[in-house]
Design a protein around this nucleic acid. Sequence first.
DNA 1: AATATCACCAACCGCACGATA
DNA 2: ATATCGTGCGGTTGGTGATAT
Length: 212
Amino acid sequence: MGRAPCCDKAKVKKGPWSPEEDAKLKSHIQTHGTGGNWIALPPKIGLQRCGKSCRLRWLNYLRPNLKHGGFTADEDNLICTLYLTIGSRWSVIAAQLPGRTDNDIKNYWNTRLKKKLFPKQRIRSDPPPPPPPLLQESFLSCTNNLEADFQHHNLWENSTAMIDLPSQMGIYSAMPQLHTSLPMANAISWEDMNNYQPWIVLDEPRLLPYSQ
DNA sequence: AATATCACCAACCGCACGATA
DNA sequence: ATATCGTGCGGTTGGTGATAT
């Protein structure tokens, strides 16, 4: 048996919120709170919206002290670092960035940071040198995330994908206080990373395929 | 100028989980 | 023990404006 829908989809409004709807929701929550029940909230205040939609609108746009856009370099670095450490746990990442929402961060990652972190694929004609042992060991913790992103971009299919590891590691060197909190922090120097050629080490460890 | 493509982002969807009846 | 409910989360979609052809 499937799960019952949270509301009658035929009777709720979808799409962008109007200023009037925003005002109703904001005013009610600021004076009465959510009442601990989002589903019951919309009919109570005369909104033809799903409770989940109200919750999202409040959390992402109406609640106080939210920041939109204008991500700083420090925020960029923190998001990238946390993503490489814990993966796409946006709510956890958002908790480290006051005033930012998980949705904002997720969008920002998907539209900008991912491209920055995973630059366009490259084709190499010569075999890369073997990676330093410490590097193999140190990057095991983040390789699952990287692998997932490669798969997401279908980079496995053409076997030409290599990742520009030094440019990724630059995000750490720009933020030493985060660097020290990472598991690999004591195992490898930033000079090593910056001198290192494009490689990515997988769980075995093994190397991504590259074109000959 | 018209059309196609890209980039951005607000919002929706479905699933998992914990609480509760 | 189990069904149901509300909530939170991450993935995805679709609308819109900007840019390229």
